[in-house]
Amino acid sequence: MSDRSNDRAKNALIVIDMLNTYRHEDASLLLPSVAAALPSVVDLLRRARAGDVPVIYANDNFGLWRSHHGEILDIALSGRRPDLVEPVAPDSDSLFVVKARHSVFYETPLAYLLDTLGVERLVLCGQVTEQCILYSALDAHIRKLEVAVARDAVAHIHADLAHAALRMMERNMSAQVRAGADIVL
């Protein structure tokens, strides 16, 4: 596959499940990795916003089917670790897709939104590497979108599975797996 990390491809930064209450079974395993990934996620957000790259949040809705992005953000900020949510909160230009399953594409309008924006390449960051990041990368690949994953801007529950997931994305999906600072937006 060609490397579309140049100006010819329109990029979008996809922030996956970073608005989190951390009130779930695996939270204690996830939190150290989220704290480590946070600076790179914040840097990607800063660079995307400065470069007018669309920033799209794809987030679970905590099972609240009446929820919207403002409510999801409020719930996450009232969770166990608002210090991990506040730095990555959506700004007024951010786009938002509510998801209920692992992939950002499953039963969401994301594919339509990306097509409308003319996006050809996704830069993925967020959580969880071995779940939502992996399945979202696969669904993007199936849709013939280029994928980049900022390895230092994704958080995991299980380090060994995250490492394997990153290798799978790079090898099987031709994803660019790089440090966030090395990813062109």
Rank of each mutant, 00 (worst) to 15 (best):
S2L: 04
S2Q: 12
D3T: 07
D3V: 02
R4W: 04
S5M: 09
R8W: 00
A9P: 00
A9W: 01
K10E: 04
K10W: 08
I14L: 11
I16N: 06
M18T: 12
N20Y: 07
R23W: 13
E25G: 11
E25C: 07
D26L: 08
A27L: 06
S28P: 03
A36R: 03
A36Y: 06
S40R: 04
V41N: 01
R46A: 14
R47Y: 11
R49F: 08
G51Y: 05
P54Q: 10
V55K: 07
I56F: 07
D60L: 04
N61L: 07
S67D: 09
S67T: 01
H68V: 12
H68P: 02
H69F: 14
G70F: 10
E71N: 10
L73S: 13
L73N: 12
A76Q: 04
A76F: 08
L77N: 14
R80Q: 14
R80H: 13
R81Y: 05
D83Q: 06
V85F: 10
E86A: 15
V88K: 05
P90G: 15
D91T: 12
D91N: 15
S92N: 13
D93Y: 15
L95G: 11
L95D: 11
H102M: 03
H102V: 06
H102E: 03
S103N: 06
S103D: 09
S103H: 07
V104F: 08
F105L: 06
Y106C: 10
E107Y: 01
T108D: 07
L113S: 12
L113P: 05
L114Y: 07
L117C: 00
L117Y: 02
R121E: 03
R121S: 08
L122E: 03
V123R: 05
V123C: 03
C125R: 03
C125W: 05
Q127P: 08
T129A: 13
E130M: 05
I133S: 04
L134D: 05
L134E: 01
Y135V: 10
Y135S: 10
S136A: 11
A137M: 02
D139S: 08
R151E: 14
D152Y: 01
A153Q: 07
V154I: 02
V154D: 04
A155L: 00
H158T: 13
H158G: 14
H158R: 11
D160G: 15
L161F: 14
A162F: 04
L166G: 05
M168T: 14
M168S: 15
M169A: 03
M169C: 05
E170H: 15
E170T: 07
N172L: 15
N172C: 14
M173Y: 13
M173A: 13
A175K: 03
A175N: 00
A179V: 11
A179S: 09
G180K: 00
V184C: 05
L185E: 08
